[in-house]
């Protein structure tokens, strides 16, 4: 795991330097965040490129075969937005972080739309590890922490496979020692 601690990305905040009105969401009491593997960027890029190809193929088919000119414009627009967001992919992956605190798992992700979730270990119902085809090639795995609430949504993508297994075992161990009912 590439876990050199990043002190919560202070530099990655253009709004704050420009306009002091804006304030990024931050947890002042939180410790050091563990990051996911930088290789995970590749997984995201491949996914985006596949999506891009499908959009282009669909738009192209509509345009060339059925003479729908609007399809070309719509397809082009979607492709442009996707390409721009592709440039932010490394930043977005860097923003994914988690930490195992004394009693809870803390998870964060997102740059434009930030999200922090804290789950007490005792609430764990199961831990799910999945490996997509691209992630498997790169030796990565996704870990999902499932509680009784569907909205918790704590999924840590792009962990090295060994790290994912170790993290799963650690989480199960922590959950067992702090078991609560439903």
């Amino acid at each position: 795991m590439a876990e050199q601690p990043v002190p919560d990305y202070p530099r990655s905040n253009p709004t704050e330097s420009v306009a002091p009105v804006g304030a990024r969401l931050d947890l002042p009491e939180a410790g050091e965040w563990k990051r996911v593997s930088p290789k995970y960027v590749m997984v995201e890029i491949v996914g985006t490129v596949v999506f891009l190809l499908i959009v282009c193929a669909a738009a192209g088919a509509l345009w060339l075969l059925l003479d729908q000119v609007w399809a070309a414009w719509a397809g082009g627009l979607i492709a442009l937005i996707t390409l721009v967001s592709l440039a932010f992919e490394p930043r977005r992956v860097r923003s994914i972080g988690y930490q195992l605190r004394a009693d809870d798992l803390l998870f964060r992700r997102g740059i434009m739309y930030q999200r922090f979730v804290s789950v007490p270990y005792g609430r764990m119902q199961l831990v799910d590890i999945t490996r997509g085809p691209v992630a498997r090639l790169l030796g990565l795995a996704d870990l999902k922490f499932v509680t009784a609430a569907a909205s918790s949504g704590v999924a840590i993508p792009g962990l090295a496979e060994a790290d994912a297994d170790a993290l799963r075992d650690r989480l199960v161990e922590l959950a067992e020692s702090r078991r609560a009912g439903l």
């Binding site: 009105v21 804006g22 969401l25 979730v117 509680t147 609430a149």
Partner: peptide, 17 residues
Amino acid sequence: RLQSVGINQGPVRRRLR
């Protein structure tokens, strides 16, 4: 009975702190 807590922030809310 609480399962977890989450806080979110989008661009609009960031401008308004």
